[in-house]
């Protein structure tokens, strides 16, 4: 994972709440066995509408998505994060993220920046008054800036640290190999095992 401290890019306003992962990427695109190549799948139903925000010229190359509350609800599909990244997004801003989506983002280096809804409204206003305007997300200062506007953002401390260091979760955990083995040694024998198969 590439370390990320700040990101500056064109912001797209997505004025919708409860953007579920079926909207972000419909199930028919989940048949692929790769982690990339999902850019065409992102918001595929909505993108058929010429009025959809990502079909508007200044937002086509957006890398920051500013969305309504409860972004990423529903299915656990990490494909939603892969699709956002493949399209070019590096940051999603919302007042509230679904837990699994937020977790998946953190693992894949997509910044899920939580910003109060009243500040999201200010960002939307600022972007729409100046389409194509850039937003800067600063993980050091934990702030989001758009022109003269700067608002605070929230991100849990551990995810922030991992994003800034670009750390791989599995390597971090394997440093605890001894503790894991010790724990395994103490598990009750009645705990279920899948092997050998019983019938």
């Amino acid at each position: 994972m590439e370390p990320i401290t700040t990101h500056t890019g064109v912001a797209a306003p997505l004025r919708a709440s409860n953007v579920d992962t079926d909207q972000i990427i419909p199930a028919v695109y989940l048949k692929r066995i790769t982690k990339t190549g999902f850019d065409d799948a992102l918001f595929s139903a909505w993108r058929k509408d010429p009025e959809f925000v990502l079909n508007q010229e200044p937002y086509r190359n957006a890398s920051v998505l500013v969305a309504g509350p409860d972004f990423g609800t529903g299915s656990s599909r990490e494909h939603a994060v892969w699709a956002l990244k493949d399209y070019g997004f590096r940051v999603v801003i919302s007042a509230r993220f679904a837990d699994i989506f937020r977790g998946n983002s953190g693992k894949q280096g997509l910044v899920a920046a939580q910003v109060d809804q009243q500040d999201v409204e200010l960002l939307w206003k600022s972007i729409e008054e100046n389409p194509g305007t850039q937003i800067t997300v600063d993980l050091e200062a934990m702030s989001v800036s758009c022109g003269s506007l700067t608002v605070p953002m929230h991100l849990d401390e551990y995810t922030r640290w991992r994003l800034m260091e670009g750390l791989d979760d599995i390597s971090l955990t394997l440093a605890h190999e001894e503790s894991i083995s010790e724990f395994e040694g103490g598990r009750p024998t009645f705990k279920p095992k899948t092997l050998p198969a019983q019938s």
Binding site: K35, S76, R77, E78, V81, I100, G103, N104, K107, Q108, D156, Y158, D169, I170, L172, T173, L174, H176, I180, E184
Partner: peptide
């Protein structure tokens, strides 16, 4: 439920980092 990165994490370590 977990995402695919976490699936890989469980496969490799049988654990998850969780708050």
């Amino acid at each position: 439920g977990i995402g695919t990165s976490e699936v890989e994490h469980v496969m490799a370590t049988q654990t998850l980092s969780l708050a």
